[in-house]
Amino acid sequence: MNNRIRLSLSFLLILVIIGICGLSWYKANSPRQLTINFSAVVGQQPLVYNQINYPNPGGPGLFKIRDFQFYISNIRLLSEQGDYIATNSYHLARFDNEKTIYTIQFNNIPNRSYRAIEFAIGVDEKANGTIISQGDLDPNNRMAWSWDVGYKFILFEGGLQHGDTLYPLVYHVGFNENYRKLSYPVQGELQASVDFKVDIMKLFNGQANLNMAELSSIKFDRNDTRFLADNYEKMIIAVKQQPAK
């Protein structure tokens, strides 16, 4: 009888140990979620559409933003244990919502120790050269030029008020050479939510600040588009993580 109880107790103990081990193994290996937030601002000011209240970066007058959107693509998380590469990762970031935030949600990220987040602004050469719909790429959407030119990577449209004239502002940037890869180190453990700030003003701040009155539209001129691409490469800023509670 005594022996029986002892046997049952040991058996129970083994079960409990297996359970605890299993649970911690599951916790360590079960997929996790990741939310990436991109929050748009214009310099020190919040983004408000269709309001003439932002200073011309390199000249006189104030400008308004009617539309602003761009492609974020090929998101990857780098890890010594193996990178996580998102599939069909073409995300059209738009901010015409109440909080001017664009959010990308992943639900099945392997639970690893990640050291960096990488993504690109624009559309990679391969995807830019086909009319196959993948992710947010759609050859009939507003970001598509004609199929032999490819996609606009970034679209900015608005107006510059100077004197009594409203100059139309059209900045469309595409072309493979303007695809820009970005990398952001992960500080400590990767949090469930990672925040970025998108400063639209930085699009016009580079080696020189763009005077919108002089150059109110950029589309196909290779030098001008490269100027904007060099600038937008720096427009996404990682927001410092709050330490986990």
């Binding site: 059209l92 050859p139 009939n140 959407n141 507003r142 598509a144 030029w145 004609s146 199929w147």
Partner: peptide, 18 residues
């Protein structure tokens, strides 16, 4: 034309009020 009429459909764009 293509700034408003998409290349194949030739319609307006589908997202929101684009």
């Amino acid at each position: 034309c293509i700034d408003c009429h998409s290349q194949f459909l030739t319609s307006g764009f589908n997202t929101k009020y684009d």
